[in-house]
């Protein structure tokens, strides 16, 4: 009974954060800020949903834990690869007045060499 309540709370929080992540992807102004909103919110959202289902069905908990650990490791890696790739093909990050981009120098150097 207690497990069911915890499970429902976790699943609700997870789905809520999945929705916020998607909203962030829709609203943010450029690739990098979209990635920020997307990666963080969907990672916690997926973790919450999957572990919540593990609490609702206690005999599934081990496999759900494996999926959760895999998502927690793989999501930052894929977003890192995407961020590097987008910067390399010349997409400039959205900067406000006086914003800095120290990676641009390194990137230029790589292209000329």
């Amino acid at each position: 009974m207690v497990l069911t309540v915890i499970g429902y709370i976790l699943v609700t929080i997870g789905v809520l954060f999945l929705f916020l992540g998607a909203l962030g992807i829709f609203r943010m102004p450029d690739v990098f800020t979209r990635m920020q909103a997307g990666t963080k919110a969907t990672t916690l959202g997926a973790l919450g949903t999957i572990i919540g289902v593990g609490f609702l069905q206690p005999e599934w908990i081990w496999k759900t834990l494996i999926i959760a650990v895999f998502i927690a490791i793989s999501n930052p890696i894929s977003s890192h690869a995407l961020a590097r790739g987008s910067h390399k093909i010349g997409i400039k990050p959205y900067l406000k007045e006086g914003g800095v981009d120290t990676y641009a120098e390194v990137d230029e150097g790589v292209k000329e060499a």
Binding site: G21, V31, G38, G45, T49, I50, I71, N75, S79, G85
Partner: peptide, 24 residues
């Protein structure tokens, strides 16, 4: 741009993974 679409795809797959578990 193309990378915007791939970012959206990346997040769609994460949402789908969680959604399949919930459907199960």
């Amino acid at each position: 741009t193309a990378s915007d679409r791939i970012v959206a795809l990346d997040n769609l797959t994460t949402i789908t993974t969680a959604g399949l578990v919930l459907l199960g």
